[in-house]
């Protein structure tokens, strides 16, 4: 959902300084995305961030009529109810997608030692969220759930496709908050290389929505758009070759490996360290002074 408010900020022309960090604990709110305002206020929810930008007169819905504003609100609700749960399922719950893509991506981008436990914790949080959204405490990944989730998501995409029609954006020639929300939900589906890509296949069958996402990427995220085009021409494995701070991570890995080897050598007795006692060069301190001094320390 960070993508939704980034898109909105681009559409509204809001001057955002983008700071990419891989450690959510270094964010001012302790989670990502987060917006630090000029008033030193911190906002985390994309909807709150968009409301804040509107208050600052950065409004992408400025040209919408009252009826279009109402439609926008309704379709955003449709996205939240039908597509968000399917996105959570596709990226966090579906076992193959989670292991091969989501967990791997987070493990490679989070700093040590967070990369060991944060992805698992995030997955548990997402599963809990899905259970609460659907009102089913015993909900688990499975064929039934997947079928139901993807059916709702496919229906939602079809409805969005019908509403978009042959237009460039949902309301005329300029993008609005609805375009930002739709893009924020659909772009990850379109651009991620998931092993179980049923949602992506369905999205690609809807030409107008695919073109809609591609156009926004090229118009408003030209650098990201070019990068994504480069990566699509690369083989599947190359997706994770460009890891941030690669040199530092290699150096740290080497240090950890060296430490482990030394520890093993010491513990198994391959290497032993002998203590040699040398004759004292100085006389030992006066023992009479030690007793009272220690008593003072205790008291």
């Amino acid at each position: 959902m960070a993508l939704a408010f980034r898109a909105y900020a681009q559409f509204a022309g809001a001057p955002l300084k983008l700071r990419k960090i891989s450690n959510p604990w270094r964010s001012p709110s302790g989670s990502l995305p987060a917006l630090r305002t000029n008033q030193k206020e911190t906002l985390s929810r994309p909807s709150d961030i968009i409301i804040h930008l509107r208050k600052q007169k950065y409004n992408a819905d400025y040209d919408l009529s009252a009826k279009e504003g109402a439609d926008s609100l309704a379709f955003i609700s449709l996205l939240e109810e039908k597509l968000t749960p399917a996105l959570i399922y596709a990226f966090w719950i579906e076992p193959k997608n989670y292991v091969d893509v989501t967990r791997r991506w987070y493990a490679e981008h989070l700093p040590f030692p967070l990369n060991f436990f944060l992805p698992g914790r995030m997955q548990r949080q997402q599963l809990e969220k899905l259970r609460l959204l659907r009102g089913d405490e015993s909900l688990e990944a499975g064929e039934e759930l997947e079928k139901e989730m993807y059916r709702d998501a496919a229906e939602c995409m079809n409805l969005l496709s019908q509403r978009l029609g042959s237009h460039k954006f949902f309301f005329g020639d300029s993008p609005s908050s609805l375009d930002a929300y739709v893009f924020g939900h659909l772009a990850p589906i379109l651009k991620s290389k998931l092993p179980n890509a049923k949602l992506q296949q369905h999205l690609k069958s809807l030409d107008n929505l695919t073109n809609f996402c591609t156009n926004i990427l090229l118009l408003y995220f030209p650098r990201d758009g070019r990068e994504s085009q480069k990566t699509t021409s690369q083989p599947e494995g190359a997706d994770f070759d460009h890891v941030p701070n690669k040199r530092r991570k290699q150096f740290l890995s080497a240090l950890v490996a060296l430490g482990a080897m030394l520890s093993y050598a010491l513990l198994t007795g391959m290497v032993s360290i002998q203590h040699v006692q040398h004759e004292a060069l100085e006389e030992p301190p006066d023992l009479q002074h030690i007793g009272p001094h220690e008593e003072e320390g205790d008291g």
Binding site: A74, S77, K82, L159, Q162, R163
Partner: peptide, 18 residues
């Protein structure tokens, strides 16, 4: 029609959501 049906479902979700 298709667009009206899409709008109807969206507004139903709005009512449930809000």
């Amino acid at each position: 029609d298709d667009v009206q049906r899409a709008e109807m479902k969206a507004y139903m979700e709005l009512v449930n959501n809000m």
